[in-house]
Design a binder for these strands. Structure first.
Lengths: 222, 222
DNA sequence: TCCTATTGAATTGGATCCAATCTGCAATAT
DNA sequence: ATATTGCAGATTGGATCCAATTCAATAGGA
């Protein structure tokens, strides 16, 4: 609670900062699959010792974003197409449930923020921000579900495929389709039509999954 | 790979051992909710420094089993009835999917092991082992689903309510009902009736959940 | 020339020590 | 008598150092 300078309130621990940075770097694609993550190098980068780096890497491994082998270092996890397909199927099961519950309880304020998020996503020109805005839109829609555990699991699943989701949006008409589908989902929410919102969410996920799988099999197979 | 003494093969890291021990102790109820977990005390118990203990506690916190506050120590997480109810609802959504897929692919060997696990559970007299045997039975049934991510999520959810599940089995007729429902589920699997197996699994989880919630509201409310 | 044993660099896991912060109790002022 | 302030003990997060292990390159022999 130092009043001097920037850090009013709770000072985040170094390992938490490093964890967030690494996760964001992996999700954004700045760290490619198979990229090796040396504790020492990361520690120097953040001007800390290897201890908090190690804790961050342990947490990332728990989440499946990196793979560590003792005495051999950590690398960004390489995900198989089967793995990615499974996670999309998982999301298609879970997220319709979440949005259905959320729609039934959604406040006017949340709905207004969802509209803003939907428009911000549709209007954004910079592909580097599409991933974040996409996620922000969905996060807003799920906000009022009153199901914290579901949300935690959904977010963990999203973290695992975020980098691929971002890549998929940049594809040919991935963004166009996402714009259309987002609008339809939002309108269903605005009408308080939980069943339709759930169905559209499911279709949205399955569409994106199919497009992504096609892209990956094409690019990896070649 | 030291040939001297006990540790042939891969030596598990100390933090992994401590993590497993603490998790098991929490799940078994040896560490009650609210019990404080001092790094120093645990370190002395395992004859290690506080570093691996800290990493273990971080992982447990990530899994929601403990709550840590800086400079104030960690305590075993206290779970609200709402939280527990949510996790049972979550399991009721997920596990039927898993068992349905698994039944369609189940090998004869797995089915035989499931029969053995079912009988071992039904025959066990020692309440202290019911929790493990229960989980072993379900794990065997889910084994051939070919959905590693689903299984990981299911296991994480089970870890979060394991101690309560164990408590529920020891209740009045919790064990009797579990025996009957397990047998029914197993028979559906043996008939390759995926739809029935899924429905029975869902009912099994919801039944256990209701019984547990009733018990908790009664014992906590009083 | 080719294959194998050895040695040193690289890398991680853990121990010990230090800095920062919180809690509780006692001393003091009003 | 009560509230406030200061100090000591307790507790955690991180830095530095050490031990254990792996990998690659190199020297030696057939």
């Amino acid at each position: 609670m130092k009043l001097k300078g920037i850090d009013i309130g709770q000072m985040a621990s170094a390992s938490a900062v490093i964890y967030d940075s690494l996760r964001e770097a992996i999700n954004a694609g700045d760290l490619a699959e198979g990229q090796s993550l040396r504790q020492d190098a990361i520690a120097k980068l953040f001007n800390v010792s290897r201890i908090p780096v190690r804790e961050a890497l342990t947490r990332l491994e728990e989440q499946g974003l990196v793979v560590t082998q003792r005495y051999r270092g950590a690398v960004v996890a390489r995900q198989s197409v089967e793995e990615i397909a499974e996670i999309f199927e998982f999301r298609a099961l879970l997220e319709p449930e979440v949005i259905a519950r959320s729609v039934e309880r959604m406040s006017a304020a949340t709905l207004e923020r969802a509209r803003a998020a939907c428009e911000a996503f549709a209007a954004e020109r910079e592909p580097g921000r599409w991933g974040d805005l996409n996620r922000a839109f969905h996060a807003t829609l799920y906000e009022d579900a009153g199901r914290p555990y579901y949300l935690q699991v959904v977010n963990a699943a999203l973290d695992r495929v975020d980098r691929h989701l971002r890549a998929q949006l940049v594809l040919t008409d991935g963004m166009d389709q996402a714009r259309r589908e987002h609008l339809a989902i939002f309108e269903a929410c605005a009408r308080r039509d939980a069943v339709t919102a759930a169905r559209l969410t499911r279709d949205h996920i399955l569409d994106a999954g199919r497009a992504l799988i096609d892209f990956l099999t094409a690019s990896r197979g070649a």
